[in-house]
Nucleic acid binder design. Structure first.
Lengths: 195, 195, 195, 195
DNA sequence: GATGAATGAGCGTTCATTCAT
DNA sequence: GATGAATGAACGCTCATTCAT
């Protein structure tokens, strides 16, 4: 339990520091101080600074992905699955603001390794969306002319940007419920009155 | 004209280098080499490295914003205004991939200055969307329960993420037209069959 | 016997590691791993890293010196004493290649402590040579114009460099016997045909 | 002339610092301070710390080698060639004590790169000795049973160790002339009275 | 005595910025 | 204005040493 403790203490500290300063402006000594360990201790648990970032993305986002996947699995109705996805994702982002910030900032890095990450673990997450949409189309719930490959991106981009408001101080703040409703309204029903 | 020339040469070079390597991994000497000027010359036109980034965002994005604003001004129908926005934004992103990449990556920086930028120049751009939606609601085209403050973010996030596909090698590629259509389908009409 | 065991296990391991990597590139953990003890255990037997090196030099070389001294003591003829020295030294170097390597490399360190060592224990060893030469001169065997103070150094330098060939891979290899003969030929008889 | 100046200023400074502290104990900032340049300036002229060492060996020893080769070329008598070698080598070592120290210490490093150096540039230098001996054997001056491959090493080892006395404080000091004479006496004539 | 996780001082190297030419 | 050699502060990472168990 001791080593597990330290590993996750560093992860949490790094998440906080990355969120505040961004990866490049974060110093190893900042993370060490935040985690209340020595600088060198960090290197007992991580290979290098970049490895910490990847670990934050892998482990912390991994938890959320896993949780959402589990919740969706127990549902068969595509409509409800999508609602669950929206709700779980936004709730997670609102609850763990540091992690949300790291996702906002670091998932965009042009770094090869981050890009690779986007192409593996994270891709699976976004593909959940297209899976749901396809299922909805099969169930006759969603329009057939919607292309799941584009829609999944639009969907994720919207969720991500919408949740940024919670990590930005001084922004006009909307409640979690309002935001969830609005996303549903927009994507599921559409804005058009007569359509 | 000579100095104007060098200023914009540096901006273009910086856009290219930032797009390729990201702000923090970009070296002043990389930009200087790309612009075919000496390292020191850059400091005749910009205060520091960060100033270059801000200038790229200000000037290059500024051009696009201006252009889109102009196109929208000449229209009164909110429906068409939104279509113009979608089309112009995606077209610009597809045409200037370097700039698109810089927006994807750098607009997320947690840096104070970038955040400030997001809160000023760029905010005006995104507010164009909420203005259009409000106008559409006044015109009875868009549903009244849509909250423009949230919708504008969802909208921009979707557009931004959707256009990322063009800067990512090996991604399944969609045409500009398909993408425009899909965004309209999603947001304006909604996915729901029966609603 | 247990502690003695561990002490010498560490000495042997350190000799091996120093030989392979050199003192500065050798890590305490390398030595610990080679000796199959914990890093901390080493500090129960040695004060610090440098102390290990000095101990290797003192103890391991000490054994050889002692052995050679003993062999020479039993002889009175200077000619034979010198032959014994040559033979014993080269044999020891050929047999314990790790130690030979450590002598080659570390005895040259500019470190104060190593220099001190060269000026004490090791000096006694080299002085054996000048003692023999002086005795030979008294016995009328060696020329009186040979200065033992310089000759002892030339002699040791030659032996040391000649034995390096055995620790260098891919070098043209000479047998122990050839090498002994050649050293005798060179120093004792000289190269000159007519002299 | 400016850049040449700085390059060689650093080489000279590094030679001094390496001689005093040894490669591993030498700090880049020590060299920079000694050369009166900024730390970073060193990296405009050398790739890394090790490159400085190799450059010292290459360039400084290179000068001596070149000089000795030139002096020997103009001679045909093997006897005289060997005397020239002895005299030039020892003179150079006595004159440039810092360099002599660096050779003593660093040429023994177990480092791959140093070993490589010993196997290329430096090997050519030592091979000069065996070339001379072979020529002497052809000229009927030197005994045929001397193996040049071993003798060259014994010879160099002797010269190197003998010259160390000049870089070691408190050692009994011999003059250059004495030392040269003794080396000749030992190797050329041999020690034996009756042989 | 033995362990090995933890420490933190220390250093090689980078690179934004300056300034003499 | 333009250059690019020079600067030196800053930081990631290593590893000898310690000490609680």
């Amino acid at each position: 339990m001791k080593t597990v403790d330290k590993h996750s203490k560093i992860i949490v500290a790094a998440t906080k520091v990355f969120a505040k300063k961004g990866f490049f402006n974060a110093r190893i000594s900042d993370i060490a101080k935040e985690a209340k360990v020595a600088d060198g201790t960090i290197y007992l648990y991580f290979n290098n600074k970049f490895d910490i970032l990847i670990s934050v993305l892998e482990e912390e986002i991994g938890k959320i992905i896993e949780q959402i996947e589990k919740a969706i699995e127990q549902e068969t109705d595509a409509e409800k699955m999508l609602m669950i996805f929206i709700e779980k994702h936004l709730t997670a982002m609102k609850q763990n603001k540091n992690l949300a910030e790291v996702i906002h900032i670091e998932l965009r890095q042009s770094d090869r390794l981050v890009k690779e990450y986007r192409n593996t673990t994270f891709k699976a997450y976004i593909d959940l969306i297209s899976d749901i949409i396809e299922k909805g189309q099969d169930q006759g719930i969603y329009r057939k002319d919607i292309m799941p490959g584009i829609a999944k991106r639009a969907f994720f981009g919207a969720l991500d940007e919408v949740s940024r408001v919670w990590t930005t101080p001084y922004s006009s703040q909307y409640t979690l419920e309002e935001t969830i409703e609005q996303i549903i309204a927009l994507f599921v029903v559409g804005m058009c009155v007569r359509c």
